[in-house]
Design a protein around this nucleic acid. Structure first.
Lengths: 208, 208
DNA sequence: TAGAAACTTACACTCAGTGTACCTTTTTAC
DNA sequence: GTAAAAAGGTACACTGAGTGTAAGTTTCTA
């Protein structure tokens, strides 16, 4: 998070914002595959190449918020005190959920967002990549936290199961929302079962 | 599995085989992204369009064997007798592993195959899609087996965790192979931990 | 204020994937 | 056996993502 100071950085930030906002709006309105990058560029008043200068892939125009969660997790594991790293992660998730953090909020906006994702094969694929990336990251953080090698299979297993639990929980929360049930309650139920499972998977290791 | 009878079907099968074999060879030799579909078509003595008539996507040229595992799982769950469905699935995996079934065999050929996958972002993504597809399938089979709705979150959680365990186990087995350790032993160790975790996640449900 | 550095753009290109119309081969029906 | 029809293969033309390059333009720095 380096501070932009000069006029140049300010303009860059603005351009990036504009492109991302325009793209997000168009994608939600008309679907990801029905909007070309050309169109986004035109609407944002910028060259097509400029779009690709800011965003490596078309999908990046829609997902812009992965880094945030990652650093939250990193901080929680670093400041975990006496807790085991897995418990620290679980505690963080419970807190984010209870405090209605944007990432886990179940209101209209995110619902729209995820509907757009679900309706687009490309975005769905991208979301899965994100899950794997976060699982790998989490695995390395866990291993680092207990001084095991970064490729430690127990860490990877724990991370992978924790992420699975969250994704399944998220899916069920969306379903609950659609049928006008309490999405948070649905989320917590599945999440806690998954967390218990992850605990059991790495029982006897320093992770839990 | 309908039997091809006429000359036409025979030729079709041959063409498909040729294309798939040529493609697989080229991809393993030079990497997925370094071989264009044009090249595959040329080498197979066929028009580029013909390739896309047989295979929906370039990636399909490389992965050709998902259906087999799916039907094995389906059969195992159907014929599970007194066992719970999750136990039946776990038993199947142990058997496949012990009997050295092609899908789980850790010899040079699959190693080459997976190295090619790992080195290609597109193929890696495809493999993940496969994992999700199989997890969804398994989830529905589990739910069907105990007469719960197909979208039952417990079934999805169990399926997702079981698949996670297998994928992490597979990854660790490949790692073991590279360092000249026993890949099967590595696989079993991680798999069993994961299975125990999945059991715990859905303890108290009819799945386990 | 001039030159360096960084960003934007136009242009040309590769490659995946699709649609269409036409040609060739196999099948089928007489 | 042969002719019509059915199906596959091909050529061609197209869209759209993504990349490389060189030249123009804006901001920064000394």
């Amino acid at each position: 998070m380096s501070k932009p100071v000069g006029l140049r950085d300010q303009k860059k930030a603005e351009t990036r914002q504009t492109i991302s906002h325009v793209a997000t709006r168009l994608f939600i309105e008309r679907g990801f595959e029905n909007v070309s990058v050309d169109e986004v560029a035109r609407e944002a008043g910028v060259a097509r190449k400029t779009v690709f200068n800011y965003f490596l892939r078309k999908e990046d125009l829609f997902f812009d918020r992965e880094e945030e969660l990652r650093s939250l997790v990193r901080a929680a594991i670093a400041d975990r005190g006496e807790q085991s790293p897995v418990r620290a992660f679980q505690a963080l998730m419970r807190t984010l959920l209870k405090t209605g953090h944007p990432i886990f909020r179940m209101s209209d906006r995110p619902i729209q967002f995820w509907r757009t994702v679900v309706e687009s094969p490309a975005l769905t694929t991208y979301a899965r990549e994100l899950q794997v990336t976060l699982a790998n990251d989490l695995g390395e953080m866990l291993a680092d936290a207990v001084d095991r090698p970064r490729a430690d299979p127990d860490a990877r297993l724990a991370a992978s199961m924790l992420m699975s639990a969250l994704v399944v929980a998220y899916g069920d929360a969306l379903r609950a929302f659609r049928v006008h049930q309490d999405p948070v309650e649905a989320f917590v139920r599945v999440m806690e079962h998954g967390f218990a499972g992850a605990d059991a998977a790495v029982a006897g290791t320093p992770y839990v």
